[in-house]
Design a binder for these strands. Structure first.
Length: 637
RNA sequence: GCCGCUGUAGCUCAGUGGUAGAGCAGCGCAUUCGUAAUGCGCGGGUCGUAAGUUCAAAUCUUAUCAGCGGCUCCA
């Protein structure tokens, strides 16, 4: 038989008999490789290990240490779950889609039976049986007609719909394990026995094909790992992340609350306001540096304005309305129309452009009740908005300037982020040509700054395309914070003009942008990012003074006053508790610095310092301590 | 809004038909203490809300509100 040349990842070349599989190849290299390999990359494409080699090729084996390997494992786990569901809940069960996702998998299921949490354990037990049987997972290809007939005969109508919608040239593949066959592009593990650790996590509803016009199916979420230890580590990580949940910490640290009287309308408490005000100070300073001016526009404006802006036609369902003296008014869901009115209060020369006009604007939006989520998703929030009015020739530079400003904001907090570009939605104002110009300007700016981005087709705002900047919460969900939206329509609607060099009126281009996104959401992100242990500059309380006995109270108060004079946020714990107790409480409050003051310190005029995360750092002069705190605050460390 | 789950003291939770309980927090008293919890005592809840079933409802039924996990949507 003919031999093929296979180039491995490390560059070595091996000869194998044509027709032998990737699994054979792995086994021929080493037993441990065969054991740890889940899938393989054949000439750059991820495939099953059961795939036979038919030509010279490059091969990379994928274990559970690679994302692709884990994805294949979880994809197989989702099939095993579907098989288990079919065993337990009968042939009438219809399956939607069952893909792998970032940290696990899900399957959408349509059945008369309503799943309850107790069912998950039953399904898991059935899955374990299927794993134990170590059923081979076999791939086969079928013609479109045969595949449609196959699934139609089984009453799997969703699968039939999926096949009908596949592109003409698609290869239709099916995977079979024991008595279960599913439509699937793969790849999969060679057999069910390879999954040593799996867990079903939650139940949820999900619309078929993601459209609320369609039937809601039942979705079961789960995750799977090659080893039990990996699963346990992941579950432990999730538990630790849950401890950083901003809703939990917000309550514990007395930062904010959300009450039944105002669902989605957060209350900021005194300590939360300190953070918020520090963020605003930082924001104002930065925006002055980047050449912005600041305005404030009203929260309620006449309904006519919203007809003019297009919000009435495109955003009405999300708006709140009211009446004043018999006239109709709307509560603003966005700041832009107000900003337009300010621009129009006088003439502008081309020499003024670009005009960068910022506004911390409180907006209200009627979000669906089921979408509300702590501070991350609320119905009233303050956007750190700005509108930049400019000449068409300034678009790219301005966008890059905004990206630079965002980078300062996010890196100050050590936040990592990623960008997404959204293009023209179905419900949009303006012609395709206008959209094309605007979209390519955004692309150019991203490319020039070398920022990688993902494209979301049809996700733009109704008035223009946008770049969104996403930040992660404690369990890895991402939230859109910053956004840059190019708008070539609002200036038209409001007939904005500037006088050009030629003395004629011209139409400016505008961008809307937010850096924090909303103060609320950003604070939520920060709470989770720092797990409540805020850097000194935004910490609600910066120094807590703990006198050991009542004798030391006077010394404590003198130092507290000195710190207050120096604009440092300080409190004295005056209770007659033992020092260990006071330290424990201050520690749980996550105060960055503590001063333990007893007779020794009072006599020597020194302070004993505890630093959050380090514990007792010893005794120093008050001046040295003050310098240390001021330095940390100044460095935003 | 849709699907599933949950709702008992300020917080975390126990209590599944016989008119409510723990720990922590709070308050009072004592203690004046050296780096993550001093002791004793006291107060606090129409069991989310509203109807219904029952001799009797925190517990069963229905509706409704809110929260949680998703879907949709989005800063």
């Amino acid at each position: 038989m003919e031999n093929l040349k296979v180039t491995l990842k490390d560059g070595t070349v091996r000869e194998v008999a044509a027709g032998s599989t990737l699994a054979d190849l792995a086994a021929s290299i080493s037993r441990s490789l065969a054991k740890s390999t889940l899938a393989a990359k054949l000439d750059g494409k991820v495939v099953d290990l059961t795939r036979p080699l038919t030509a010279d090729a490059t091969v990379e084996f994928l274990g559970s240490d690679t994302q692709e390997g884990l994805d294949a494992l979880r994809h197989s786990a989702s099939h095993i779950m579907a098989q288990a569901v079919q065993h337990l809940y009968g042939e009438s069960v219809q399956f939607g889609i069952g893909p792998w996702i970032a940290n696990g998998f899900y399957y959408d299921i349509d059945t008369e039976h309503t799943f309850v949490p107790e069912d998950l354990a039953k399904i898991e037990a059935e899955m374990e049986k299927i794993v134990k049987q170590d059923l081979p997972i076999v791939r086969q290809e079928m013609s479109r007609e045969a595949a449609i007939k196959f699934f139609a005969d089984k009453g799997q109508n969703y699968k039939v719909e999926l096949i009908r919608d596949l592109p003409e040239d698609a290869v239709i593949s099916l995977y079979t394990q024991g008595d279960f066959t599913d439509l699937c592009a793969g790849p999969h593990l060679p057999s069910t026995g390879r999954i040593k650790a799996l867990k079903l996590q939650s139940l949820a509803g999900a619309y078929w094909r993601g459209s609320e016009k369609n039937k809601m199916l039942q979705r079961i979420y789960g995750t799977a790992f090659e080893k039990k230890a990996d699963l346990d580590a992941y579950l432990t990580m999730l538990e630790e992340a849950a401890r950083r949940d901003h809703r939990k910490l917000g309550k514990e640290l007395d930062l904010f609350s959300i009450q039944e009287e105002g669902p989605g309308f957060p209350f900021f408490h005194a300590k939360g306001m300190v953070i918020r005000n520090e963020l605003e100070n930082f924001w104002r300073k930065l925006h002055r540096k980047f050449g912005y001016e600041e305005i404030k526009t009203p929260i309620i404006l006449n309904e006519e304005l919203w007809h003019k802006s297009g919000h009435w036609d495109h955003y009405k369902e999300n708006m709140y309305f009211t009446q004043i003296d018999g006239a109709n008014y709307a509560v603003k869901p966005m700041n832009c129309p107000g900003g337009m009115l300010v621009y129009k209060t006088r003439h502008h020369s081309y020499r003024e452009l670009p005009m960068r006009v910022a506004e911390l604007g409180l907006v209200h939006r009627h979000e669906l009740s089921g979408a509300l989520h702590g501070l991350m998703r609320v119905r009233s929030f303050t956007q750190d908005d700005a509108h930049i009015f400019m000449l068409p020739s300034q678009i790219k530079d301005e966008i890059m300037g905004v990206m630079d400003l965002f980078n300062v904001v996010y890196s100050t907090f050590g936040l990592s982020y990623h960008a997404e570009l959204s293009t023209k939605p179905e419900k949009a104002m303006g012609s395709d040509e206008v959209w094309e110009v605007a979209t390519s300007a955004l692309k150019q700016a991203l490319d020039e700054r070398g920022m990688p981005y993902k494209i979301n087709e049809g996700d733009g705002a109704f008035y223009g395309p946008k770049i969104d900047f996403h930040l992660k919460d404690s369990i890895g969900r991402t939230w859109q914070c910053g956004t840059i939206q190019l708008d070539m329509l609002m200036p038209e609607r409001f007939d904005l003009t500037y006088i050009g060099e030629d003395g004629q009126r011209h139409r400016p281009v505008m961008i809307h942008r937010v850096a924090f996104g909303s103060m609320e959401r950003f604070i939520g992100i920060l709470i989770e990012h720092f797990a409540g242990a805020f850097p000194a500059w935004i910490a609600p309380l910066q120094v807590k003074i703990l006198p050991i006995t009542d004798r030391n109270m006077e010394y404590a108060q003198i130092l507290a006053n000195k710190l207050r004079e120096a604009d440092i946020r300080v409190e004295v714990d005056e209770r007659s508790e033992k020092i260990g107790y006071k330290i424990r409480e201050a520690q749980m409050e996550k105060v960055p610095y503590m001063l333990v003051l007893g007779d020794k310190e009072a006599e020597a005029g020194m302070v004993a310092v505890r630093v959050r995360g380090q514990g007792d750092v010893g005794t120093m002069t008050f001046e040295a301590f003050e310098k240390m705190v001021n330095k940390a605050i100044a460095n935003k460390a």
